[in-house]
Design a protein around this nucleic acid. Structure first.
Lengths: 231, 231
DNA sequence: GCTTTCAGGATCGTATACAATAATGTGTGC
DNA sequence: GCACACATTATTGTATACGATCCTGAAAGC
């Protein structure tokens, strides 16, 4: 496992280690289900297990990590049901934040969002889709911040985090490309203060994302194995 | 400081200590701003600081506790701005959960809710308003659970927790009594499967609660202190 | 040959010990 | 008598040590 030492990121987190792990997960450099051993991480970051444990605990509250007693910490693997819930929650919350953000956004806010989009494009150009995905999430989070609802913004932060895992697990390769223009159109509406348009654009953007996932229920692994072998 | 040893509560939390502290805060037996020293709590519960720290960390993620580096953990004191945000978020989320709950509630669900109301009344009769408030929160949380949206239910759990602190800080004594009938009417709508009615009742119930708070902006403590002392 | 059992190792859970930081109280100089 | 600097103390932050639990693999029994 290869991890960055401590990349500076504009994220709100407690410890530098939680920060680094969070970024690595967001950028799909650590796959869902990966075991995150305490000794191993302590070795990598040069700290004791105490601080590693605290970091893992914090990530488990966000939903990025699942901790099983006496088993250890693993990068979370959201089920299809959870995936649906996460996107339903986003479809409930984010149009509202987009609406508020359109009413409250000042010039510097728009500039920040603009920079996010630019970074996202350059990451794509550099064929770094993981980083592009992370930046895409930051775009959504920034809108929630601009909306001035810190409480809801924290909720959205956790939803975006889990969305990253969900995309890693359930993204349909055959589905259309990520619709680069969605964020651009959203930004335009925000810049013009068109709250209703921003809200509608956000909703349809999320619905698009949601429908690009393969969330069809699957039979249990056991059952399907039995079926295969009985032929 | 007098705390229960480990009361069994139907709450979702990690450690028994977080559980006990959470209950004590919900029942207004520990006031906002109270310092929660690690040694002190370890002494009370007969465990080392390690586990106390973990519990305090978990409470800080719910927003019940604020941790300041090198200062320690304190029962959170939500600002008026945060209070407004919390209730706005509840007014956004909970009518939706009431709607879903009305469509999905089975007989046992209704029974559980009914018991909650009974317990709440008996707590009031026993002049234990703290416990009544806690049970009132549990009523709301149970509805979110019935709605079958685990993700949103967790959000609501944190919102209810902070609501308890907000009520401790900003409740207007002169305001009308807690409107005992609100939960009863809500339960009736849920039992009959009247989703729209349940949603509307929930919304108005939350608006009532919100308006029973005194959230008028106040001058800083410092300023007022200075004013008082200069006379 | 297959299953079962037990031992070894590895990892987590908790307690304790040490280091670092902040708060408080005391003493001195003016 | 007041203000400032310093020492002392209390509390948190981090590391380490020990005990408990679970997983893995080999050997014995069927």
């Amino acid at each position: 496992m290869k991890l960055p030492t401590a990349p500076p990121s504009g994220q709100t987190s407690s410890s530098p280690i939680a920060e680094a792990l969070s970024l690595a997960i967001h950028e799909h450099r650590i796959a869902p289900g990966t075991k995150l051993g305490e000794d191993e991480l302590g070795e990598i970051y040069g700290v004791s297990r105490t601080v590693v444990r605290a970091a893992l605990q914090s990530l488990s509250y966000i939903g990025l990590v699942d901790i099983h007693r006496n088993k250890g910490a693993f990068v979370a693997e959201p089920s299809r049901t959870e995936a649906r819930e996460v996107f339903e929650a986003r479809e409930l919350l984010e149009p509202r934040t987009a609406h508020s953000a359109a009413l409250r956004a000042k010039a510097p806010d728009i500039a920040v969002l603009h920079r996010h989009i630019e970074d996202e494009h350059s990451a794509l150009a550099a064929s770094d889709p993981g980083r592009a995905l992370h930046l895409s999430g930051l775009f959504h989070l920034e809108i929630a911040r601009i909306a001035g609802q810190a409480t809801i913004a924290r909720f959205i932060e956790t939803l975006i985090a889990r969305s990253s895992l969900i995309i890693a697990l359930y993204w349909r390769r055959e589905s259309a490309l990520c619709d680069k223009h969605a964020h651009g159109a959203l930004l335009a509406a925000l810049a013009k203060g068109e709250a209703d348009a921003a809200s509608a654009l956000m909703r349809s953007h999320l619905v698009d994302l949601h429908s690009a996932l393969d969330l069809r229920p699957r039979p249990d692994r056991k059952t399907s194995l039995k079926e295969v072998l009985s032929r």
